[in-house]
Amino acid sequence: MADKDLLYNYTLHLADNSMILGQRCGEWCGHGPVLEQDIALTNIALDLIGEARSLYQLAASLKGGTATEDTVAFLRDVLAYRNVLLVEQPNTDWAYTIVRQFFYDVFHFYLHSELMNSSEERLKNIATKTIKEVTYHLKWSSEWMIRLGDGTDLSREKMQDAVNGLWEFTGELFMSSAIEQKAFEAGFAPDLNILKPLWQEKVEDVLAESTLFIPEKNYQQKGGKTGVHSEHMGFILADMQFLQRAYPGANW
């Protein structure tokens, strides 16, 4: 069995990504461009938060004591959150939301394809369930990439703008944190270097079909994985943790 602390910390990487993206997707509920898609995006939010819950429950069991999925999710401050910068980026508009989702879905898909072979049974089980959900997310976001990229002049412009705006947050997905590196060495997490070309290829294919381009400017931001987040993250947590913080120890 894997080292408890290492598995705990690695699990947080996975959980925080899905939690924060789920939180962002949830912001759309009631404000989507059309009812059917409002419902579709909420389904994705529910999948992501559902996955995060499984992972937080695993983390809580590793932590032991009085830890629960909620104490792990709600009682850490910004520096202890390990999600990538990409998922905390604001919804902005439907274009940013779709592009952010697509970039993450491709990563999420290949990540869980690998985790399905993890030597850590509990991660493997979560991945086996998650992969079905993510396969659908990826289909959904890929189709929207193509539909809007190759839609009207206006939609192409908005999509290209979103690709340009979010591109600098994609590199971090593949920059291993110390924890990810150790988890890989311990044999229960995939090598992010293997995922990168897979991600790149899929993204290029879909962007090509969407008539969109990878921006030339290629500086890549990083920091989320080590807790150095964007300013957005504080506001996400302020919303998310408000009740837990205002009424410490209360049951809800």
């Binding site: 419902i39 579709a40 189709e143």
Partner: peptide
């Protein structure tokens, strides 16, 4: 409502 058949099937799934 859906813009095309793919979307119609997916919307049906989601709804």
């Amino acid at each position: 409502h859906a813009a095309d058949v793919k979307m119609a099937i997916e919307n049906a799934r989601d709804v």
